[in-house]
Design a binder for these strands. Structure first.
Lengths: 72, 72
DNA sequence: TAAGACTGTAAAGAGTATTTGACATATGTG
DNA sequence: CACATATGTCAAATACTCTTTACAGTCTTA
């Protein structure tokens, strides 16, 4: 239900700005490289836990890291 | 994995402040009442999508709604 | 007492997030 | 060329989120 709604993210841009590889970011967040890759390419959304971890590592507020478009 | 880390939340307090029942909030977020109940009682964390929905309905920033304690 | 609204909880099942391992490609460097 | 690094992707397996259904307890009010 509600399939139209997406949580886009700016992870790739922010990661590259800090000169981190997907593997670097994965290690810093204690997840696999494939997980970072999948999230950057919008295969699925991270868990809330990982979202906070990403925001912390990338030193970016959650609201900036993810663009949530309500009820499109 | 990573079992020590938790994402606590202030949903119950904020919900009651707005005089909403669990059912009210559930309906507004398009999830079941049990889901709201489980999240309020820390049975599990919501998805990122639902977290944004809760923040939107409760008109509260994500960082205020959830208390993320990193690497305890 | 009875009835209604609100909340806590449990079990079964569907759907999603994440992992590991593998393979492909592209780029840069010895 | 050979080697390393970074990235995209796939498949199978596991863990977790979330749903529905159901029952129980509390509180208020008629």
């Amino acid at each position: 239900m509600c399939g139209v709604m997406n949580v886009e993210n700016n992870i790739k841009v922010l990661r590259q700005k800090r000169k981190l590889s997907q593997k670097d970011l994965a290690t810093a967040c204690a997840v696999s490289r494939q997980t970072i890759n999948a999230i950057e390419n919008n295969k699925y959304d991270p868990t809330l836990h990982l979202a906070f971890e990403l925001a912390s590592v990338l030193e970016t507020p959650l609201e900036e890291l993810f663009n949530y478009n309500r009820s499109e």
